[in-house]
Design a protein around this nucleic acid. Sequence first.
DNA 1: AAATCTCTCAACCGCCGGCTG
DNA 2: GCAGCCGGCGGTTGAGAGATT
Length: 298
Amino acid sequence: MGCNSLEKSKTKPKHRKGLWSPEEDARLRNYVLKYGLGCWSSVPVNAGLQRNGKSCRLRWINYLRPGLKRGMFTIEEEETIMALHRLLGNKWSQIAQNFPGRTDNEIKNYWHSCLKKKVVKAQEMEVHMNSQCINSNSQSIDSSTSQEKPSIQLPGFESFENMKGSSSTDTDQSIPQMLDCPRVDTQESPLPKILFAEWLSLDHIYGQLFVNSGESVISKDTLDQHDPTFQDNFTHGFLLNEESYVGELHHGLSNDSSSDMFSPQFKFESQTPGSGICDFVYGDEICSDFNMNGHVMY
DNA sequence: AAATCTCTCAACCGCCGGCTG
DNA sequence: GCAGCCGGCGGTTGAGAGATT
């Protein structure tokens, strides 16, 4: 690695632990926005932080990264998490790839604090109902009933069955079909009707931006505002500078005509060139800072 | 009002695979 | 092939907030 030599000769600094202060957040944010994502181990040194690189990386990914969606999980998100967990097990990073703006840590926490209990409850209900069923009419039960259990079929997520393979964990083996979980109807699902075959993560996008600083991923000139292939804006927000509305950022999917896949894209609409740091507002929340310089720049 | 309990979630820890010298 | 470092991931912890007694 190119950056490890930086640390080698130096004595190990004492790293701060615990919660991040606003000052530390500001230092890290300013550094990454200015110099981009590179070698995390050099970030605390260059940014003047008494943290280790790992801690900086985690703080950026889970808290400071632009585009993070904060707040409660929706019913749809909840159902999707449970469905994906049944398919993938505790593969939180893979699950998180299907939730733009959510982090694997967030999903993992939500699972352990809320969803796990629901699954256990459902499991207990199933056991209870099965025992009742056996007692009342044992001869009517045959092997086919288990195949008729309700199963959550996420539209477009069929291929995850293939991904599951042998990587299943103890948890996904023990989780029963959800008896009280509303099934996702393929006809009426509010979820995107596609599979994110490979979600182009924000990290990836920003990483490219930082490497090629000066390039704009969201350019009002390069993106067709009326792109007919741009579908299902499932997240969007507003860009504000210090005083006023600057534009609207859509985060959606664009059909790649060369394949059946859709790819995530940003669209920037109704823009008024601004300057300086802008906030991306999602819902009622200010998510992060965006540098604006005519186009959306970083 | 105070003590205790429960829950949430940010952050840490340890492991793993990939890369480099 | 080996050692060292890195980023990434999943498991776990513990501080703090809110609920309950």
